[in-house]
Design a protein around this nucleic acid. Structure first.
Lengths: 290, 290
DNA sequence: GCATATATCTGACTTTAGTCAGATATCTTG
DNA sequence: CAAGATATCTGACTAAAGTCAGATATATGC
């Protein structure tokens, strides 16, 4: 009915008024919004004054005065940065932590109230994840991580669950050649996770072998991050990690039930090769020289 | 990985900064945000000063000054309301329409830029619709409309498409007993559409018959509005319309492939009855005395 | 060691937003 | 028609946000 642009603008109107309501609830604590924002930035772990100023987009004069007013309230303390005495570092006092917790409670209550009013919270959360990822796509960081870390294991769990849904015969990881974690750690390989804030949105493993090539394994992009080019970014990161590790030849296997994966490989310089392992799941095999 | 509340708050952070960016782009036109908002409200058809004030939540003094500043710029003209000379009515001048169009272009460019950067715009739009509907649920209006109106036809088209997806054998409306539009118009019946802004989110038809009962037909809720209790609201509206029209007995048919519909009927006082028509699609029949 | 760059702070502003108490004109109700 | 209600406007404020030009202290590069 509505055209796409009108639908985006309907969304904009809806969230603008919701955001305004949260700001108003923050004012209820008797402090101007500017000071509240600085306090919350510090509470969320931003201690460096220059970083806070940059994050909130404040003028240095204004920032200085907001810090002073929070200090006068006894909510923060500032000290010189240990490596550079020009910079200042702010931290919450005990009273500041209490006040920060009160703001957190307001935010959490608002969030919970929104979820509680909705009968199908899963669909709502999935939609929120998708939009938040799209809006912050430029801030998605690709970090090398241990494949045994919580973030990596979360990604792998989601990846296996998705294979189970998409393969007609399901997916049992114990039947697949599960790569040893050590093969996906430096110096034999690596494991890369795409993180948006604290939310893992995708992963890829580079698994070293003793056969003169390394394998790309476990490429996964969260449903909330599809359409952002994250698969391509992860593959590029894996290939450049391979180059750094002195690996010249890469191979991977995949399944034709995952057409978007095959398409990505074909578009980015991979060539199809004959089967090179006896894993029961894959039916497509690729190779690329990097 | 993240808990639901953190996911909502991640979304809040993401949209807060996006909304801020749009506001900043509005400032680029050299006018304070307050005045820009009033101008845009007038451009979007709100002419009554009291209505604008209420919509934007402004103090009457502030509102008056903002109107004066727009008048001084030559962007609007105000006249007395024709029925009530205390009230004022604002409208754009030629220059005002030009300036309004410039703000519209900024909003549209922002919306389009966001969509264009995303490879799967359909999923993104569906997510935005869902969230916008959840945020504005209290402003969803149920309006009686002609079943031949654009809004009604849009709903029916979506409804048929969904039946086609959910019935194993598909759905061909020409095989079903398509109700005559006149039977879903007063005084024989009615057709109700749930509207959120200009987006239709659901519908229900009350179809008069000559057999001593009326039928509920075409109950549909858009995917973007599921979980908001809209199905129940639509049914209540249809039942109360029936009461108004002096109809005492209601019947409906549905299909067990739509379990959420059957559940809704059972929970709201409908009792299952034997088949009362020879439509090939339904396999469940209900009745309710209102 | 000195010139230059950087991070923060202070003082002196301006603009924007918002509040509140009347004033004025008009409408509604009895 | 009078009394009260309502819509807008004006004047006189305050608070918050933001700007900008130095001042001060510290770091960095030659």
């Amino acid at each position: 009915m509505l055209d796409p642009i009108s639908r985006v603008r309907r969304f904009n109107r809806a969230v603008t008024s919701a955001v305004g309501a949260l700001d108003t609830s923050f004012l209820g604590r008797g402090r101007p919004l500017g000071a509240a924002r600085v306090l919350n930035a510090i509470g969320h772990g931003r201690s460096d004054v220059a970083e806070i100023r940059d994050y909130l987009g404040l003028d240095s004069g204004l920032m200085s005065r907001l810090l002073r007013s929070l200090e006068d309230e006894g909510l923060i303390e500032t000290t010189a940065h240990e490596d550079d005495a020009r910079r200042r570092v702010a931290k919450l006092t005990r009273a500041g932590r209490r006040e920060f917790a009160a703001y957190e409670a307001l935010s959490n209550t608002q969030a919970k109230g929104f979820l509680d009013r909705h009968a199908q919270a899963d669909a709502l959360l999935a939609a929120m994840d998708l939009i938040a990822s799209a809006l912050t796509r430029d801030r998605i960081a690709l970090d090398a991580m241990d494949p045994r870390s919580d973030e990596a294991r979360y990604c792998l769990g989601e990846y296996y669950a998705e294979l189970g849904r998409r393969f007609k015969q399901g997916f049992d990881v114990s039947l697949s050649r599960d790569p040893d974690a050590v093969d996906m750690r430096r110096p034999r390989g690596t494991f890369i996770v795409a993180m948006s804030d604290a939310l893992p949105l995708g992963c890829v493993g580079l698994k070293g072998t003793d056969h003169g090539y390394a394998e790309i394994k476990r490429l996964w992009v969260a449903p909330a991050a599809r359409g952002l080019g994250l698969g391509r970014r992860l593959m590029e990161a894996a290939e450049s990690a391979a180059r750094e590790l002195g690996i010249a030849l890469l191979r991977l296997d995949t399944n034709s039930a995952l057409p978007e994966a095959g398409q990505l490989y074909r578009r980015t310089g991979w060539s199809e090769i004959p089967r090179f392992n006896d894993d029961p799941y894959p039916d497509l095999f690729f190779e690329k020289r990097v």
